[in-house]
């Protein structure tokens, strides 16, 4: 085995990086892959709560770097999937405790017996971003169909090109089909046309994402969730499968009403 290291980044904060990492890592593990995710957001640790693993943390990334524990000791095993691990970020230390070469070294140590290492990047284009992309074999840029998120995504794509990390693939998150239909939200085509990079997935706005993070159980585990389906599809594409893009046309009012009646909404 030699792992592929995938970094999820965005420029703008709050667009869904951590959500994407938790869901993609879980989906890949559900497909039988050995997956380690690394929370690169030093000081603002979140991946642990989104994955429901916050009570199991003993050591973190900075403990590994500073030699207080072995790499294996900082890898927290998922509650349900035996081949899914999290290396949590340090909560109390400053970002300078981690350098790009530390990230490269840790990822290289993980490569031999892992299929995928997924790194959650902090927002911004500073040191934390540089650390997060240092070891990446490929980068996923997450954006929302919204002006500031797209603008920041474009900046990040430019920086990745300059670092010769590119070309990244794009995840458009929180697309609202009804708004797009009324031409009050940028469509996926608009965003792709503006950014000019390859699309790997479109994730609809879905309340199940919030419900999932409340429970510490990523949405991909919920067979009925649309966002979960979108993330499962992206995970397949990361494994080299060709999966058609979901039909995100708004469901009719009647269809919605029936679903609500049937207790599915």
């Amino acid at each position: 085995m030699t792992a592929k290291v995938i970094t999820v980044t965005s420029g703008k904060g709050g667009v869904g990086k951590t959500t994407a990492v938790a869901n993609l890592a879980t989906a890949l593990a559900m497909d039988g892959k050995r997956v380690v995710c690394i929370d690169g957001d030093i000081g603002l640790r979140n991946l642990d709560v989104v994955m429901g693993l916050e009570n199991r943390i003993v050591y973190d990334l900075v403990d590994v770097i500073e030699g207080r524990c072995k790499l294996k000791q900082a890898m927290i095993r998922d509650k349900h999937l035996p081949d899914l691990y999290l290396i949590p970020a340090a909560q109390t230390r400053d970002k300078n405790a981690v350098s790009p070469s530390d990230m490269v070294r840790i990822c290289n140590d993980l490569r031999p017996d892992t299929d995928f290492v997924i790194v959650d990047s902090p927002a911004g284009i500073e040191r934390g971003f540089r650390n997060a992309i240092a070891a990446a074999d490929s980068v996923l840029v997450v954006t929302n169909p919204e002006v500031s998120a797209v603008r920041d995504a474009d900046r990040v794509v430019g920086l990745l090109e300059a670092e010769e990390k590119g070309p990244p693939s794009l995840i458009i998150n929180r697309l609202n089909p009804n708004l797009v239909k009324n031409n009050d939200m940028l469509s996926a085509e608009d965003v792709l046309d503006l950014l000019g990079i390859r699309l790997i997935g479109i994730v609809p706005e879905d309340e199940n994402v919030i419900i999932g993070s409340n429970r510490g159980a990523p949405t991909v585990g919920d067979a009925k969730s649309r966002a979960g389906q979108a993330f499962r599809n992206i995970a397949k594409r990361l494994q080299g499968e060709e999966v058609p893009f979901m039909d995100l046309a708004p469901q009719s009012g009647l269809w919605n009403a029936i679903q609500r009646f049937a207790g599915r909404k």
């Binding site: 002006v147 603008r151 797009v180 031409n183 009050d184 939200m185 940028l186 608009d190 503006l194």
Partner: peptide, 19 residues
């Protein structure tokens, strides 16, 4: 003009200058 159209036009300009 619906808002998505202005969003796209404005972004087109901004990105060209940013880049």
């Amino acid at each position: 003009k619906r808002s998505a159209t202005s969003a796209k036009e404005r972004l087109q300009l901004v990105l060209v200058h940013d880049r």
